[in-house]
Design a protein around this nucleic acid. Structure first.
Length: 546
DNA sequence: ATTAGGG
DNA sequence: CCCTAAT
């Protein structure tokens, strides 16, 4: 019983210029650049890894380090009832709505400085709260870490910064929002591995999600908020931060057998843990220019902020396994080949890569592009200059607030900071049998479309038509990394179906009838459109055949 | 990499 | 959601 009747009730203005050949569309889509909106800012991945690893391992004393992400309760801008014509998701899906904290050992290899202890990197947008121990703003408590870490003294929350003027600190660390990146790869990509690994073990759709911790992590970060850009630290060049690489050794971890609900059905899986030993998380090179009269404290802060900015400011952690970049953040470690059983564990690379294509300050870089393979950019490459007034504003310390920075001789301090150290753990072993069980790939988490998403999808399809899912994706789901164009296409398919069946047969979160009407409307329109274009331009062969 | 359609 | 085939 198809209710096409309601279609007439709604008319819709469709763009006159239907669709152009893909070849043509390609060029015109200059601004479609996929933005590396991995506002999963830098340490996000690590945090995720950590969380994943640490979750469900409470009884396990195998904790390696403490990396945890802190979710900040920033106000999320309300989406207007009526979505704007363009970018329906700009409001709700914008990136990076959190700050991250890394606790780890720190070594500053700068002249005269050596420091060890835990450091708290707190990169938070818009200066809410202050840095380091002073901040209490909605910080999640670190789950108890177990004796191993404690014994190593890693738990001491020694703030490396003097507290005397922490107040002046807040607000200086502001991730830059570099929206578009000329040619980056959409997150939707690389499914090759999964293709290979995916198996039929996941037949059927389940209603259950995967491990809770993992999921909630993602849910948290789907909801983001727009960040204001403020670049207080441009004088600390991030050009040097283009890339560094860090090699980590994996060690055999313990395995605990747990029962968890997977998409599909509940099943018992042996949940093995992987231990990553990241020997030193190295920031490429930081150049800090600072007056001699500046205080040690301010120097420390500068380094700290430089590091923080570096991590949050348009950089992201990249991961390479056996020389291949792993782009799909949704893949499990196991799927990716990061397994304690793997023999090539030594070929695991983390890298800090710029998410922006902009060559930062590398004006003298002949290659003209971001040097992903360049571990270091030299000081000569940058023209980092202090603007005295600016500095004074930043560091109103009494010691030099009287003089202008230009009068002061400055010291150029190259600093390489080791940020974290993950402590190794005594290896454990598991049976071969268990190893085998883990080999199967996982189906992606089920993520029902919200009404909001449906709205966005409908609107995009109304505008772009069916069959242009890539464009739809970039138009309305740019920042929704977990929605691939295939997903959108599939969703549209089901939407059309849903619209055709009776409300009683529908399941899940009910989609407003108004939206379904629009779906049918648009579907009808574009279907006809498609027919006409195919008939209007019969292929030469078909002509001959006739 | 995208698109289309079946499973 | 997944998988495949065809672009």
């Amino acid at each position: 019983m198809v209710s096409h009747k309601c279609v007439e009730e709604f008319s819709l203005q469709f763009p006159a210029n239907a669709r152009a050949p893909r070849s043509a569309r390609r060029r015109s889509f200059k601004e479609e650049e996929i933005s590396e909106n991995d506002r999963t800012c830098a340490i996000d991945l690590l945090a995720t890894v950590a969380e994943n690893l640490l979750s469900e391992s409470e009884g396990d004393h195998c904790l390696v380090t403490q990396i945890h992400s802190v979710k900040e309760e920033f106000p999320v801008e309300e989406k207007p009832a009526t979505l704007p014509d363009v970018g329906p998701y700009q409001g709700s899906m914008s990136p990076c709505g959190f700050s991250s904290v890394i606790n780890g050992k720190v070594e500053i290899e700068a002249e005269g400085f050596s420091n060890s202890g835990a450091v708290v990197l707190d990169a938070r947008p818009n200066g809410v709260g202050s840095l380091g121990g002073g901040s209490i703003t909605s910080r999640t408590k670190v789950p108890s870490m177990g004796a191993a870490a404690a014994s190593r003294g890693a738990l001491d929350d020694v703030n490396m910064f003097s507290r005397d003027d922490d107040e002046n600190f807040s607000g200086y660390i502001c991730p830059r929002v570099t929206k578009k990146s000329p040619r980056s790869v959409p997150r939707v990509g690389d499914r090759r591995i999964r293709k290979i690994l995916a198996s039929r073990h996941w037949k059927g759709g389940s209603r259950h999600s995967e491990a809770k911790s993992w999921r909630s992590y993602y849910l948290h970060h789907q909801r983001s908020y727009p960040i204001k850009k403020r670049k207080y630290f441009e004088h600390i060049s991030d050009s040097v931060s283009d890339d560094y690489r860090l090699r980590s050794k994996m060690q055999r971890g313990s395995r605990t057998v747990t029962t968890m609900k997977g998409p599909g059905a509940s099943f018992v899986s042996s949940d093995s843990h992987v231990r990553l030993r990241i020997k030193s998380f190295r920031v490429p090179e930081l150049f800090v220019e600072i007056p001699e009269t500046a205080t040690v404290g301010s120097l420390k802060r500068m380094v700290m902020e430089a590091v923080s900015t570096l991590l949050s400011d348009g950089h992201r952690v990249g991961l390479m396994v056996q020389g291949k970049k792993v782009r799909d953040d949704n893949k499990t470690l196991h799927q990716t080949g990061i397994s304690q059983d793997n023999t090539h564990l030594d070929s695991l690379d983390f890298s800090l890569e710029p998410s922006s294509e902009a060559p930062h300050l590398l004006s003298s870089n002949p290659l003209g592009h971001v040097c992903e393979e360049l571990p270091i950019c030299h000081a000569s490459d940058m023209d980092t200059v202090f603007k005295s007034e600016h500095d004074l504003a930043l560091y109103p310390s009494h010691s030099f607030d009287k003089e202008t920075a230009t009068d002061v001789s400055k010291a150029l301090v190259p600093a390489a900071a080791a940020l974290t150290e993950l402590s190794p753990q005594p290896p454990r072993h598991k049976s071969k049998q268990q190893q085998q069980q883990q080999q199967t790939a996982q189906r992606r988490m089920r993520r029902p479309f919200s009404v909001t998403e449906v709205e966005a999808l409908v609107q995009a399809v109304e505008k772009l038509g069916t069959g242009r899912w890539r464009d739809v994706k970039h138009s309305a789901f740019e920042d929704a990394d977990h929605r691939t164009y295939v997903d959108l296409k599939d969703k549209w398919k089901t939407l059309v179906h849903t619209a055709k069946i009776s409300p009683q047969q529908r399941r899940g979160e009910p989609v407003p009838q108004e939206l379904l009407n629009r779906v049918l409307n648009a579907h009808g329109y574009w279907s006809q459109q498609h027919m006409e274009t195919t008939l209007a331009l019969p292929k030469p062969e078909s002509v001959l055949l006739l």
